[in-house]
Amino acid sequence: MCLTRPSLKTLLPFAKQTAYMGNMSDTFTGPVAAEITKRLEESLDPSHLIVRDDSEQHRGHAGHDPRGESHFTVEIVSTRFEGLNRVQRQRLVNQALAELLKERVHALAIKARAPGE
């Protein structure tokens, strides 16, 4: 549990860091990650997609699932995001993953971009 409040100074580098690319085995660590990848590919036809399992960083937190695969970061580039604002883009991702978010995935960080951004 996070009982201390990090200062913005410590938060900004976290937000700015680029997603860890990893190799295939790091990126697709389990069945939930594979399902997230499949659903996003089917619904948003991304030109770039990274699904990263952050669950280990949250071990012991409220919401951590002992099965793992509870916390994810999705970095996605798709032409479907063109002309949409941030809320609309995240809605598309959330809608594609709606069932997973209800049942299995506790937390999802989303970076959604259109090509060239």
Binding site: M1, C2, L3, R5, P6, S7, L8, L11, A15, H58, H61, A62, G63, A107, A109
Partner: peptide, 22 residues
């Protein structure tokens, strides 16, 4: 949010509070 401004119970809520503080 999850928790309070003083004691956030989740990293995302904690980050949101830090931004508003700032």
């Amino acid at each position: 949010m999850k928790g309070t401004a003083l004691f956030p119970q989740c990293g995302f809520s904690s980050r949101a509070v830090a931004i508003l503080d700032h």
